[in-house]
Design a protein around this nucleic acid. Sequence first.
DNA 1: TTAGTGATATCC
DNA 2: GATATCACTAAA
Length: 172
Amino acid sequence: MSEKLTREFFHRPVLEVAPDLVGKLLVRRLPDGRILRERIAETEAYGGAEDLACHASKGRTPRTELLFGESGRFYVYLCYGIHWLLNVITGEAGQPQGVLIRAGAVHDGPAKLTKFLQITGSFNGNSATDDPELWLEDNGFRPEILTAPRVGVDYAGDFWKSVEWRFIAKKE
DNA sequence: TTAGTGATATCC
DNA sequence: GATATCACTAAA
């Protein structure tokens, strides 16, 4: 039994949504009709105009416009020309906040996850609560959560690279 | 450790 | 127009 996450779920501060998303189900309906489900094992919070690791901190641009916008949408970003990274927008409009989905229970790594789920830039800007091909569900699973510094943000300065905004489901 | 890859932003 | 950057992965 599982319930689709609502817009209210995402319409909260990113530091509440990010740990809450750990343990939720990411559900993908493929073009051929198959349904894939993967439990989220790891997320990272990005947000706040001061967060130097957040794309949007360098200024509002067409690409980051989504981060400032409505919560409950997907922000899909092509990294290093090869890898699609999946984010969900959270928080109030006007605040650049988002949660990076870093890993699933099976597919460990942000780009492996999007590759498995066949997520590409075509999902950028889609609604996370009202999309026929990709959404999130709560099946009541509540893992124990560990925190850690974020990955791959060395450029963001001593403080922002060490802040523990990474949330990982503890292994059983 | 480094090569691969391409959108985006920034600089002529 | 050109160049630098980047929330990664796989191969070596």
